[in-house]
């Protein structure tokens, strides 16, 4: 396009830059996500949270599974791991235990984390593994073409439910709560400020933290259901969301077009896996216990 037609009427100071860029592998941008997809918006919030938390980025590792959100790891300029479908959490578990000084963030989608990876999610939450799980919930399997996910609300048309979804969906925040997560919140991609703050908070919270982000998928979810484009969904989030911090998670189910309860639901203190491990070994072995030095020292 001709630059003249869109000449920016603001004066851009020399040396200014998009604050997201230092967090991205700019040689991989533009990304693969569709117009109106919300994943990029969540990445903005995540980078603002990293910035605000003043984390040493050399010590932050990001682990993704497979799918649209699974591509986040590849764009983040961190130590990043794009693993197999559903297995980001157990990979992150090994990574964290081998090097406890790492801040390990799992960034993946609803299908990846809660269908094929559901078993790992519940056990990592049960153990209170000190990892943070960011789930971008677009209510479908987007990368494979819009099939029914365990999060797809009833009556939605999907590629594999052409007559409408009839099986009940998971309420992710209730699941995380029931499994013992230390921190549970839900936002939508409309709530960018709250989401960034919540991400900053979860990064500082010890134990298993979980944030669900309800996010538009105009191409594979909305199109089949005549739900408009990304912006239409963002407007729906704005209109239908109710912030209810501390709401009982059992009351926070998502439906096709109803109210979306957002907020921080759980923030509790539980010893994490590593603390429990050390306490048990100290109790049982006393002086014989050797603190883990898992990384091979001389190699």
């Amino acid at each position: 396009m001709s630059e003249q037609l869109l000449e920016v009427e603001c004066e851009i100071p020399e040396g200014s830059f998009n604050p997201v860029e230092p967090f991205l592998r700019m040689d991989r941008i533009p990304h693969i996500w569709c117009a109106g997809c919300g994943i990029g918006t969540t990445v903005n919030c995540f980078t603002r949270a990293l910035l605000e938390s003043k984390a040493n980025l050399d010590k932050v590792a990001i682990v993704s599974g497979i799918g649209c959100t699974g591509r986040v790891a590849g764009y983040a300029r961190l130590d990043s791991f794009h693993t197999t479908h559903g297995r980001a959490i157990p990979f992150a578990t090994g990574l964290k235990l081998a090097n406890p000084e790492l801040q390990v963030v799992v960034y993946s989608g609803d299908g990846d984390l809660f269908a094929i990876g559901g078993n790992h999610f519940i056990h990592a939450a049960r153990r209170n593994m000190d990892i943070k799980v960011i789930c971008v919930n677009n209510l479908t399997y987007a990368m494979t073409g819009g099939q029914t996910a365990p999060t797809t609300p009833s009556h939605v048309i999907s590629a594999t439910a052409p007559y409408g979804v009839f099986e009940p969906a998971f309420n992710l925040v209730q699941l995380a709560d029931a499994c013992g997560a230390s921190y549970v919140a839900r936002w939508t991609t409309f709530h960018v400020k709250q989401l960034a703050r919540s991400m900053e908070e979860v990064l500082k919270k010890k134990g298993f933290g979980f944030i669900e982000i309800v996010s538009p998928c105009p191409t594979l979810y909305q199109r089949r259901n005549k739900m408009g484009d990304g912006l239409d969904t963002m407007k729906y989030y704005k209109q239908a969301s109710k912030i209810r911090h501390g709401a009982p998670t059992g009351e926070c189910s998502l439906t096709k077009s109803g109210e979306i309860v957002v907020g921080k639901f759980i923030d509790r203190e539980r010893p994490d896996y590593y603390e429990l491990l050390q306490a048990q070994m100290h109790e049982s072995l006393g002086d014989r216990y050797a603190e883990p030095e898992v990384g091979c020292s001389e190699c």
Partner: peptide, 13 residues
């Protein structure tokens, strides 16, 4: 896969 996470964290696993 946990062992592979551990390897990338520096362990022999």
């Amino acid at each position: 896969i946990a062992i592979q996470g551990a390897v990338w964290g520096g362990a022999k696993a």
